[in-house]
Design a protein around this nucleic acid. Structure first.
Lengths: 131, 131
DNA sequence: CAGAATGATACTTAATGGGTATCATTATAA
DNA sequence: TTATAATGATACCCATTAAGTATCATTCTG
């Protein structure tokens, strides 16, 4: 099981790169090599982050992406929420329908407690911490 | 993302069932209905648990499975280790090869800390707790 | 106005999880 | 002693998701 999927991994690298570049905008062309992923794939990721308000984008020649907020306000949780959906250790659904033992499941509330803390943990990690 | 996959889920239900049945052995035929899973599938799971030393099996007519240890010594962690491999939040491998940024990855050691605690947590939950 | 950038979206492929099928082996109960 | 009910072992298949690619439209600047 993976807490962080590829998208989040690449996103962090790109964000770190952008902070360190210290330029008004950074184009995907200019950073995909350093991030270690293909250009179209990185674009897809950064576009999601823009929609989520983490990044700003400037179109046209000379354009690119820039952080929309300060690094210490960008949490790992926002990245995971945006790129892989809300954290749910407890996947009580199976083929779209709720597990029939949901209400009585002895595991569920135990796992829910772990999930709550893990969520708080990733909320506490910011981009600033990852520089 | 799921902390517990289906196998673990079903395993817990079956184990709980077996404890409550309070019989020398319980056959898969006798419990798959209550567990809510097909017979062959449940067998596969219980066979893995037997190999791992969680269950004992008695072959032949009238046979079945039985706990090999007391409920308070069977941890959730052993179930996850057996049925879905060691807990790894940190999946630094991609297509079989180590991520090239492994050594310098700013995320890795942060996530490792979370993983360590989560592992301790599921180690602390025993079958006894789930009855 | 050409070119370099993002916006939007659809498609393809690889990996994994979930589930089935089959045959061999073993032991008991009638 | 033999039919039957159980596990042991293993190979296979299918559905879902993750990962990656392709294409065309739009926008802005030099």
């Amino acid at each position: 099981m993976t807490l962080l999927n590829r998208d989040v991994d690449y996103a962090v690298r790109a964000l770190v790169y952008m902070v360190k570049a210290n330029k008004p905008t950074v184009s995907v062309t200019g950073m995909h090599g350093a991030v270690g992923v293909t250009r179209p794939f990185l674009r897809k990721i950064l576009q999601k982050l823009r929609k989520a308000g983490v990044l700003q984008a400037v179109k046209g020649k000379g354009g690119g992406f820039a952080l929309a907020r300060r690094p210490e306000t960008i949490t790992l949780r926002q990245l995971t929420d945006t790129l892989q959906g809300p954290l749910k250790l407890n996947d009580c659904f199976f083929r779209k329908k709720l597990c029939h033992a949901h209400a009585s499941c002895p595991l569920r509330h135990r796992v829910a407690a772990l999930e709550k803390r893990l969520t708080a943990d990733i909320e506490a990690i910011t981009l600033r911490d990852l520089l």
